[in-house]
């Protein structure tokens, strides 16, 4: 089962890279871009039979390794299509 994990800096934490990208976009004339926050994206291929098991496992590895809870938060999405064998 494929699980997607999105890690971003917490809203209260300054993101120097996101700011630099936003500044670059403004310099390019994209005034409609208010702000940019940069993050990390992981695809986990998990040996899990149910969505609940997959979520629990992904939650554990995100908390222990993928994200640093001091500065980052994360969000998990489970791709149920693979389990159902239909969605691509």
């Amino acid at each position: 089962m494929t699980v997607r994990v999105f890690v971003t800096l917490k809203p209260s934490v300054f993101d120097p890279q996101g700011r630099t990208i936003a500044d670059a976009l403004h310099a390019m004339g994209y005034d409609g871009v208010r702000d940019v926050r940069q993050g990390k994206y992981f695809e986990l291929d998990l040996d899990a039979d149910t969505v609940d098991v997959a979520k629990k496992l992904a939650d554990e590895v995100a908390d222990k390794l993928l994200a640093n809870p001091v500065i980052e938060s994360y969000r998990i999405e489970v791709d149920e299509g693979e389990k159902l064998g239909s969605r691509s």
Partner: peptide, 17 residues
């Protein structure tokens, strides 16, 4: 030492990037 939790806090990218 920050990652292992012996000291509090974390490191961000330098503000100069």
């Amino acid at each position: 030492l920050l990652e292992v939790g012996l000291l509090p806090g974390g490191m961000l990218r330098n503000r100069s990037v």
